[in-house]
Amino acid sequence: MHLAILTAIVVATFTFLIVRSLRRSKQAELSDNRSQHEAFVNADEFDEMVLETSHKTPVMVDFYAEWCGPCRNLTPLLAKFADDYQGAFLLAKVDVDKNEQLSHRFGIRAMPTVLLFRDGECVERFMGAKLPHSIQYILTKHRIHEPKAASSQNDAQE
């Protein structure tokens, strides 16, 4: 009886360690593919990295959860925009499961939710995955434009 319990504990511990290791390697892989204009932000650094930075450069904040299917579709799209716009805005990513206080502070009720900050204030908010033209419209509406060199390269590719 005791041997069966001990075996179950060893198997459960071993499984936990393998799953944790796989998650960490997946997170490292995802962070390696991150845009240079993108950063993960937590509650302790939010005011400085988002609100203060938004006085110089617009900051788009992606409130996401790893378990969220639409988030997995929107995240790479936002990262591509951040790269294409070459610093015209910064992309801040907030994991809602690790930063519940930020979710409460900004009234996040669904994932993904994206907020755009300018001059320390939220000037735009949308929920759910969006198509590229919708995101481009939001950026243009707030006078955030893709650099000319990048847009002419995209035109040449199409």
Rank of each mutant, 00 (worst) to 15 (best):
R105D: 02
V114L: 03
E124N: 05
H37C: 05
F46Q: 02
E45M: 06
Q136D: 11
R109L: 05
N73I: 12
S152F: 14
D119K: 02
E29C: 04
F63W: 10
R20M: 12
K56M: 11
L22Q: 14
V10R: 00
D62W: 02
I135L: 06
L30E: 09
V59Y: 04
M49R: 11
N99V: 04
H55E: 07
L91N: 03
N154A: 12
L6W: 11
I9P: 14
K56I: 15
G120T: 01
M111S: 00
K26R: 10
D83E: 08
A4F: 13
C122V: 06
L22H: 05
K141G: 05
A43H: 06
A65I: 07
L17N: 07
A88L: 02
W67A: 07
A8E: 10
L77Y: 13
E100H: 08
E66W: 13
I9D: 05
Q36M: 10
N73T: 13
M1D: 14
L22V: 15
N33Q: 09
R125I: 01
G87R: 03
G69Y: 06
T13G: 05
H133K: 07
S54I: 08
G120E: 00
S134Q: 13
V50Y: 02
L74V: 03
P147T: 13
F16P: 15
I9K: 06
E45R: 04
G69K: 04
A8H: 09
L6D: 10
N154L: 14
F63P: 01
V11Y: 06
E29H: 09
E158T: 08
R34I: 09
F81D: 06
I9W: 12
L22M: 05
I18Q: 07
L17Q: 05
L116H: 02
E121D: 12
R143K: 12
F106W: 00
Q153N: 13
